[in-house]
Amino acid sequence: MSLVRVHNFSISLDGFGAGEPQTEDTPMGHAGHRLHEWMTATHAWQHTGGSRGVDNLYTQDTDTGIGAEIMGAGKYGYPGWHDDADWTGWWGSNPPFHTPVFVLTHHPRPPLEMDGGTTFHFIDAAPAEALAAAREAAGDADVRIGGGATVIRDFMAAGLIDYLHAVVVPIVLGHGSRLWDGLEGQEADYQIESICSPSGVTHLTFTRRGL
């Protein structure tokens, strides 16, 4: 069976994966771009120039073998986007996913086909149901859980994540959307490795035991 993976999910030292409040102009709230500066500085992100060390290795592995993505409503858009018929996400006409993307929302709407092979499917579904739909769309390829923190937390609590790559960024946000709440003891199910980068971030990988 295909794997369920999380890649490059950045969190602060106090465990927040996004700041607040989220608006159309501030998709990451008061965190701004600080959680992702390590990634945007890599060669894999910039294509010309950029760092080529451990951060780059993790960044370039993000899309390998991915056949579908699941994301939360807050990753797709700002609060209230479902009332805006013209809203098509943060990424312009050619989003970077190039696969079917399942957006978890309490306001389903018809699928939205974009340039480059991305089609957004808007579904109101529990984690297991959403994963079944994504796996069917992905075929033999893996499914990526794209975030935000609440979605990753729900899938992990349900025992559905096989591989989680979290990046601890040395900033303190104080408030926002926290990743680890309610996941006490989950580490027992995973082999955990950590790698410190010269950029100052720490890469944590959780690989389900027995894979």
Rank of each mutant, 00 (worst) to 15 (best):
S2K: 01
S2P: 15
F9M: 08
F9D: 01
L13C: 09
D14M: 14
F16C: 05
P21L: 00
Q22I: 10
Q22L: 08
E24I: 00
D25W: 05
T26E: 05
T26V: 00
G29H: 10
G32N: 00
H33C: 02
R34D: 13
W38I: 00
T42E: 03
G49R: 05
S51M: 13
G53R: 06
V54C: 08
V54Y: 01
D55S: 09
Y58F: 13
D61Y: 11
D63E: 06
I70V: 15
A73T: 15
G77I: 03
P79Q: 08
D83S: 09
D84T: 10
W87Y: 12
W87F: 07
G89Q: 10
W91E: 07
P95N: 05
P96N: 02
P96I: 05
P96E: 03
P100Y: 01
P100C: 07
P100E: 04
V101Q: 06
V101H: 04
F102Q: 06
T105V: 02
H107W: 05
P108E: 03
P111K: 08
L112Y: 06
E113I: 14
M114I: 04
M114H: 09
T118F: 07
T119A: 05
A126H: 04
P127F: 04
A132G: 03
A134R: 03
R135C: 11
E136M: 05
A137N: 05
D140K: 13
D140L: 12
D142E: 02
R144P: 07
R144E: 12
G147V: 00
G148W: 03
A149H: 05
A149C: 04
T150W: 04
D154E: 15
D154V: 05
A157P: 02
A158N: 14
G159W: 14
L160N: 09
D162K: 01
H165I: 02
H165M: 07
A166S: 15
A166R: 14
A166D: 14
A166W: 08
V168A: 10
V169D: 14
V172I: 15
V172A: 10
G174K: 04
S177F: 13
W180M: 15
D181N: 14
L183A: 11
E184Y: 07
E187D: 15
E187V: 12
Y190E: 08
I192P: 12
S194G: 04
I195A: 14
C196L: 08
S197L: 10
H203E: 09
L204E: 09
L204K: 06
L204W: 02
F206R: 02
F206Q: 02
T207A: 02
R208I: 01
G210C: 03
G210Q: 03
